[in-house]
């Protein structure tokens, strides 16, 4: 065994790794591999919860993410809102988290999709605004959304005046809740209002958080989940399958570079370990 080769395999220059990673991402984006993506039961349940949501009740889209995680959370928010709009369900947007970017980003996404689906602000969708403290806000909204939020976030008009709020007094009057999040905010929904609401709570976490949510899926406290960007791509595939979307978009395209990057990761880990064992073997032989 060539000891120096084994040594080199353990110590590839980081800049080479970075260039390979960047190249893989660019190539993957330009030449997507047309392989189908299996739909996970969790994404299917999220989709089904929205599909079964009553059209005479409003839905809550809770956003707890900033541009730092938009690579995952933006497509999740888009597919969820698109699905709601395709079913003509009224949308109330709530924004939380450490960064108020969430409300602006959500308004931007919803505003863009609203043009496509002819959704009118105040009649079909509304932005309730951003709140620093989610726990108190949710507890209050369980009793009276209008009293907690008072005005909408875009026009600053009293919330009760908007037609979209007709029949919506509290969280108990909501048909489906979906939170797209980069934080552990699901605990607030589950812990403070989940059991008092009749609406299913669906979740779109970043991939980092997704594994810790399976326990809540098992207990039924969360009805469905989008596993990061992969979950968003699965949801997009379901939208295509159900005819809401004509063809898959960027989210599905992004799965190829993600796949290639993960393969690269495992190849690198394999090389590093092979190098280590080869070097050890060579050392043992003297």
């Amino acid at each position: 065994m060539d000891k120096s080769l084994a040594f080199r395999m353990q110590n590839i220059d980081r800049r080479i790794l970075y260039i390979v990673l960047l190249a893989i991402v660019v190539i993957g984006l330009i030449f997507p591999i047309p392989l189908p993506l299996a739909i996970s039961p969790q994404a299917q349940k999220f989709f089904d919860a929205v599909e079964k949501a009553p059209t005479n009740k409003a839905a809550i889209v809770s956003v707890v993410w900033s541009a730092s995680t938009q690579g995952e959370n933006r497509p999740q928010t888009e597919v969820f809102i698109r699905h709601l709009m395709s079913r003509r369900i009224r949308i109330l947007i709530m924004a939380f988290g450490g960064d108020a970017q969430s409300v602006t980003l959500a308004q931007e996404i919803t505003g863009d999709l609203a043009k496509e689906y002819n959704y009118e602000y105040g009649k079909d969708w509304i932005s309730l605004g951003y709140r620093l403290d989610q726990t108190g806000t949710l507890k209050g909204a369980l009793l009276d959304i209008v009293q907690v939020y008072k005005t909408d976030s875009k026009e600053r008009r009293p919330l009760g005046e908007w037609p979209v709020m007709a029949g919506v007094k509290s969280l108990k009057d909501i048909g489906v809740v979906g939170e797209i999040s980069a934080s552990g905010a699901y605990k607030n929904w589950i812990g403070l209002v989940g059991s008092a609401m009749s609406a299913p709570l669906c979740y779109g976490p970043t991939s980092v958080m997704a594994p810790e949510l399976y326990t809540y899926l098992d207990s039924g406290q969360i009805a469905g989940m989008m596993f990061g960007i992969k979950g968003a791509a699965e949801y997009e595939a379901l939208l295509v399958k159900s005819g809401v979307l004509k063809k898959a978009g960027f989210t599905t395209r992004a799965i190829t570079p993600i796949s290639l990057a993960l393969v690269l990761l495992f190849v690198l880990i394999g090389l590093g370990n092979w190098g280590m064992y080869a070097a050890r073997k060579a050392e043992a032989k003297g």
Binding site: L21, V25, G28, L29, S68, T69, Q70, G71, E72, R74, T206, S207, V208, G228, I229, K230, A254, P257, I258, A261, L262, L265
Partner: peptide
Amino acid sequence: VMARMALLID
């Protein structure tokens, strides 16, 4: 890892 890659791809 998947999450970080998604951010880079974006």
